[in-house]
Amino acid sequence: MDWSQGGYGFYVWGAYLFALLAIGGEVIALTMRKKQILGQRKSAEEISKGRNNETTS
């Protein structure tokens, strides 16, 4: 394979770099969303546990 792409390397690799960013960015955004949701669930559980402890003590 000719890495210079016949002199069009900037355009070819630039296009594929954007593709990598779009696909990789979507996957990273989904991973971050998962962390955020799990964090929210955890804090909600802690709050409800705290309330239960207050009512039982």
């Binding site: 000719d2 016949g6 296009a15 594929y16």
Partner: peptide, 21 residues
């Protein structure tokens, strides 16, 4: 796309952008 498909006679290698575009 990069190792098997031949270079285009008119556009050269820049046509390989089409495989994602």
């Amino acid at each position: 796309g990069f190792f098997v498909a031949p270079t285009d006679a008119q556009q050269g290698d820049v046509y390989r952008i089409m495989f994602i575009h």
